[in-house]
Simulated assay, not measured.
Amino acid sequence: MTTILVTGATGTLGRQVAERLRTEEADVRGLSRRSPSYAVDLRDGQGLDAAVEGADVIVHCATTPRGDDRAAGFLINAAKRAGTPHLVYISIVGVDRLPLGYYTVKHRVERMIEESGLGSTILRTTQFHDLALRILSGVSKLPVLPVPAGVSLQPVDSGEVAGRLAALALGGPAGRVPDLGGPEVRTLTDLAGAYLRATGRRRRVVPVRLAGQAYAGYRRGDHLAPEHALGTVTFEEFLDRRRHPG
């Protein structure tokens, strides 16, 4: 039986990856700060060797706005000490193009993994539906609903990403694999309208022009992968499933 360690196993993505792998009868270890079995804070790496020992594969889903490269360093070193298991990493489309601090660190982690000597697989995806929902639900509390003018997203379902990661974990190291994008490239104005219709709210959607290199990159579509629109779940279907679970 394949033993697979999933970091960030209580998060939106990691939880689903662990569930998918268990249906494939893998021996899954769920690592997170609150895990009952493998409670590890990757920011200091304490207890990581015990979690990694004997694992055939590590699926690295844990992430934080600050310190991802430090956490990855602890994980890579522990993997080397444990006998170089296959390391599967989830990244983001555009980390090599958009001048955002978080993206820069994610790209640095990609390079750390590629240069580590470990067998590895790296999958980049577009933004999750969950992120689009979080953005829109936050700004919908205002009297009007402001969105960055001229910016589109290509949101993808986290369950579909989890399925792809699980399949990659059960295979051999594949290096950088093709990106996984959502089924549609949609303007934020369009997505805002879909959100308002689904929630029954009435707001005027106001496109707002912003400044800066990151905004220019978003307007160019540096975070999109229209040639890899492999997801099937639309934003409307995602919202409907949240309203009517099961």
Rank of each mutant, 00 (worst) to 15 (best):
V59D: 05
Q16T: 14
V28R: 09
R15C: 07
L87S: 06
A26R: 07
D49S: 06
D27L: 13
P36M: 00
T10N: 12
I90A: 15
L48R: 02
L75W: 07
I92A: 12
D68S: 10
A50P: 05
A71P: 05
L48C: 08
C61K: 12
T84L: 10
L21M: 00
T12C: 01
A82C: 05
E24C: 12
V57H: 05
E25V: 09
A55N: 08
P65K: 15
R20K: 10
E53T: 10
G14Y: 04
T63R: 11
A51G: 09
I76G: 02
R22I: 05
N77A: 10
T64I: 13
D41N: 07
T10D: 02
L31T: 01
H86C: 09
G83K: 04
V40N: 03
D69Q: 08
V28C: 03
Y89I: 07
D44G: 01
E25R: 15
G11N: 05
D56I: 15
A62H: 08
A26W: 02
A78S: 13
F74E: 11
Y89L: 04
V17I: 04
S91T: 08
S35F: 03
Q16W: 08
D69E: 12
V40H: 06
D49W: 03
A51S: 09
D69V: 11
R81Q: 10
C61N: 11
R29V: 08
L13T: 15
L42W: 08
I90W: 14
H60T: 14
T64G: 12
I58F: 03
R43G: 14
A82T: 02
A62G: 13
Q46G: 12
A51L: 05
G14F: 07
L48I: 08
A51Y: 04
G83I: 13
V52K: 00
V95E: 01
D44T: 11
R66H: 12
D41Y: 00
A62N: 13
T64R: 15
T23I: 00
R34A: 14
S37W: 09
D69I: 06
R43T: 15
A55H: 05
L75T: 11
V59F: 08
I58R: 00
Q46K: 15
G73H: 10
G47L: 01
H86Q: 12
L13K: 04
R70F: 11
K80W: 07
T63W: 11
S32Q: 06
G67V: 05
V88R: 01
A62F: 06
L31P: 01
V88M: 00
I76T: 03
C61T: 14
L13R: 14
S32Y: 05
V28H: 09
Q46P: 09
G54Y: 03
S91F: 12
G45Q: 09
L42I: 04
R70E: 15
D56Q: 14
L13I: 12
V57K: 05
R66Y: 10
T23E: 02
A78N: 01
S37C: 11
R70I: 15
R33P: 02
G54V: 11
R29N: 14
T64M: 13
G11H: 10
T10Y: 09
Y38A: 03
D41E: 03
